[in-house]
Every structure is written in structure tokens, then in C-alpha cells.
Amino acid sequence: MSNTSNTANDEVFRIWPGTAALASRELVRFFRQRTRVIGAIGQPFIFWVLFGAGLRGSFQSPDWAAKLQQPLTYQEYFFPGIAVLIVMFTAIFSTISIIEDRREGFLQGVLAAPVPRSVIVLGKVLGGTILAVIQAGLFLCIGPLLSYVGLSPGLQIHVDAVQAICAAIFLTLIAIELTALGFLIAWPMSSTQGFHAIMSIFLMPMWLLSGSFFPGDGSNWLAWIIKLNPLTYGVAGLRRLLYSGELPVTDTLPSMAVCLTVSAVFAAVCFGICTWLVSRPTANNVA
């Protein structure tokens, strides 16, 4: 950053209004596009019900589920993973708009404004995070109710107030992590097609291989990939917060402390890279 002569106080004063303005713009845009609301929450919901019903018979419960009071159904297993998928879709939809913002010219107007470059990242990440937490939270509240209409088995999920707050906070952390990741992928892209390609070959596999869709206990190499995937720690942390009772620490289910640390570090790294990318004035910044 070139502007080091400003006082820290002045910086804080300038960071908040700009961040709030950009974040609220994200919210207004989102609620004006009804199809986005349906896309981000509808598809994961359908996945959950369909895969839950279809894979029910062939699902092999992971080692850590042995101590649960009842055997783990696939739909229960899949539940935290779907919440994370909603967060990921929301993050993708929010950050793909960076490419549109650049093409439509909005972005260069912001880049020419006297705000610290981190505001441009913060505004987007904050907006995307709020949307992701609202939608994933909605799913976590509504999902268990589906058992009353026969679309899901009864879940062994008994969430008290403290657990709900912890889950919301951890969901926020995952949302920051994924929105920042989406941001740094979208920033150098010149077309939305490019982003879709990255989504199919990188982001979706990242979610599939995070212990959200299958435990991956059986295969050695798969277990390694899952272990190296930062998102594994997001899914596992959420799983620990949602299920009732203590779950043991296994190869594919890290401890809560590890989950928190890895998620926080990964979010911070992504955010740092984003700010660095934005603060470089390049020919790419202008349409």
C-alpha cells in the first residue's frame, strides 16, 4: 500500500462507511434477484432430500459414529455438508459478481475512490457472508422439520441456544473463508465462464472431498486428500457443533480446536491474498 501517511484513526473512520455501503449493496442486489435466492438454497435442499433417500441403503457409517445412540442415517450425515454447500453456492454467486462489476464499470468507480483497498474486499466478503449465514441458517432450521412430512428421517439433532449461537459463529467463519476464496478466484478473471470452469474443477471437488458427501474412510489416498482440504475442517467443526453428544477424534474427523484453527488461518490467508491482489493497480483493474 502506498498511503502510509494516514493516521490509524482516520483509516478506521474510512473503512467502516465504505464497507457498510458495499455490503448493503450486495444485500439489495441479492433480494432484487429472486432467482438467486432459489438457486442458492433450492438446489442444496433438493440434493439433501434426493441423495438422502437414494443413498440411504448403501451408506456405511464412519468409525466415529459408532458411539451415537442410534445408527447414523445418510441424511443425518449429509446435513452439515449441505449447510456448507449453501454457504459455498452463496459465496460463488456473490463473488462472481466481481466480474460483472468490472465489466459494467462499477468496479473502476470504486477503485478510483479514496478508500483503503481492503474496503473493497471487506465489503464483498461481509455482504456475501451475511447472505450465506442467513441462507444456511434457514436450512439448518427448516431441514429437520422435513421429517414431519416424511422427506427425511428423524434427526438426532438437538440444538440448544448455546449450540445454535456457536454454530452460527462457526458458519460465519466458513462463510468468510469461502467468500474470500471466491473473491481471489474471481478477481483476476475476465469472464464468468472462466469462473464456472474453476467452480466445476476446483470448488465442487473441494466440497465433495471435505467429508461432507462421503466419509472417505476406506481409501488411503482419499483420506489424505480429505485431510489436506481446508474445507474438511469447516464441515467437521460444524458437524461437531450440530450433533448431540461428544464425537471421538478420528482420521477424518479432526478435533474442534483443530477445526477452528485451520478454518481461521485459511480465512485469514485468503483475505490477505485478496487485499494484496486488489491493491496492485494493473491494467486488469479497468474494463
Binding site: A21, S24, E104, G109, A113, V115
Partner: peptide, 27 residues
């Protein structure tokens, strides 16, 4: 003050929302 060749407005926001957002960014 910068005015670009292609207007740097958010096409989904109203005129007032655009101006307000920009003004807040300028502190």
C-alpha cells in the same frame, strides 16, 4: 471526480441508492 466512458453505475440499484452508496464510500 471521475466519470467513465461507460457509466460506472450499479444497474440494479436506483439512482438514489447509487448516489448514496458512492457517497458513503467517499466517507
Amino acid at each position: 471526480g471521475v466519470t467513465f466512458q461507460s457509466p460506472a453505475l450499479d444497474n440494479r440499484l436506483t439512482v438514489q441508492e447509487n448516489l448514496r452508496c458512492h457517497g458513503r464510500i467517499y466517507g
